[in-house]
Write a protein that binds this DNA or RNA. Structure first.
Lengths: 238, 238
DNA sequence: CGCAATATTGAGTTGGTTCAAACTACGTGG
DNA sequence: CCACGTAGTTTGAACCAACTCAATATTGCG
């Protein structure tokens, strides 16, 4: 059990509010600029459980799905990494999770040795890493709570609102969400089956909460309604 | 969402293998020695969600339950802290979780300001914090996986084995587990109801996996059987 | 266009919950 | 030391949200 987890840190956690200044102001993200990139085909793994943790990565384009599996095929998706997100933090020995490009993707690679050397020289970077992982921990617990305590509708509402907020942070339209992952990925993220995810999408559309086009484009029609659902203000009271 | 999570780090994560040398060899735990202690009555909170994160604590005696709640009362227990465990790491602003003493408890308190000052002077401490939180992240994801993907029997088996392994690490009897928490705490940890937890305990006893005395003392009779259950090697195949 | 992969919808089943009642452990005061 | 009350646990029976299995409908790619 020397392995330590890897996962995305959402962009805003390193970022100044202004998009144009985003990464240029951050001690950690700065380190990536002069390092090599690596292209990944759709469905190509960046790394797998058990691989030696040699690098930390920043997604430049595309999307990475972070997940774990059990021997019998049960899968837990832990996070979806978007451009700007850093993945691979938290590793000391080997990877405890898998990182899979869902589409054609480009990542920038920073050797872990470089990172630790830099941290030895600059205590502020060590604290930055600590804070970055602390936020990942917060996200992991939020997901734990969602999966463990909420109904299917509440889970999907939380998920959509999370993506909407991510859009807002990135100065994209929070009312329109493009899903770069399959129903299967969403199901394994939320601890549901693809059928339940699909049915819940349909239910949201019928209830006028969202609009759905081509399975991939979600338009939020009633953000307040979704918020209420996610907060457990509906259904829970019978 | 500036709050950052707090939670236990199990003792062995800071520890040398020999019990007597345990904490004396660790950069982080050393910092606690000269600091003040604080006694807690049973069911007294050490801190609550939203409280300013002023200190980091090490449990000296007793037990602390870390949890989050939803407005309608749904509760997620995140961890149980034992003597030697450090809690409160990961906080930058305010607490995102509650910490409740389940029994009469003693904690040692280290101010966060002291910790950050020390980290500024010593880059190694910053990395220690980073590694400590990384392990908490790993534990949080393990729990996420358990709660999201496993059946009630698998969850309880994992839980008991976790406590058994903790005993082994602490050079205590891994075959006998004293439960310092209620069925309700276990249920909220595993994402089940108290009834299901109770029924599953009974089932384990009937199946000869464990012996149960006074709800509080669990004797493991068939560790291999529990391991198989936790790994999904039973039941999952129907 | 045609095929393969993904998504939706339907029908029946079930593991875990809910509601309810009985039982046990334990601390307190008479 | 025991009666009592309270909190926690176990057990039972009915129910339901999500699952499984199965068929149909999209989507997108070669």
């Amino acid at each position: 059990m020397l392995a330590t987890a890897f996962a995305p840190v959402t962009e805003h956690e390193f970022a100044a509010p202004l998009p144009s200044l985003r990464r240029s102001s951050d001690a950690l993200s700065d380190r990536f600029e002069q390092h090599a990139t690596r292209p990944l085909a759709a469905k190509e793994h960046l790394f797998c459980e058990g691989d030696k943790a040699t690098h930390v990565y920043r997604v430049e384009a595309g999307h990475i799905c972070i997940y774990r599996t059990m021997s019998d095929g049960r899968r837990q998706v832990i996070d979806f990494a978007y451009p700007g997100d850093v993945i691979g933090l938290g590793a000391i020995g080997e990877h405890a999770v898998n990182a899979l490009a869902t589409v054609k993707t480009l990542v920038r690679c920073l050797p872990v040795t470089t990172l630790t050397d830099l941290a030895q020289a600059d205590p502020r970077l060590g604290m930055k890493l600590y804070e970055a992982i602390s936020r990942e921990l917060l996200a992991a617990r939020e997901l734990l709570f969602t999966v463990s305590q909420r109904t299917a509708s509440e889970r999907l509402a939380s998920f959509l609102l999370g993506l909407s907020r991510r859009n807002a942070r990135r100065s994209e339209n929070p009312g329109e969400i493009v899903l770069p992952m399959t129903r299967s990925d969403i199901a394994d993220f939320l601890g549901l089956t693809i059928e339940t995810v699909s049915r819940t999408f349909t239910k949201f559309r019928n209830d006028g909460l969202i609009d759905l086009e081509q399975c991939i484009l979600v338009t939020i029609l009633d953000a307040a309604g979704l918020e209420a659902l996610a907060a457990g203000e509906a259904e829970a009271r019978h």
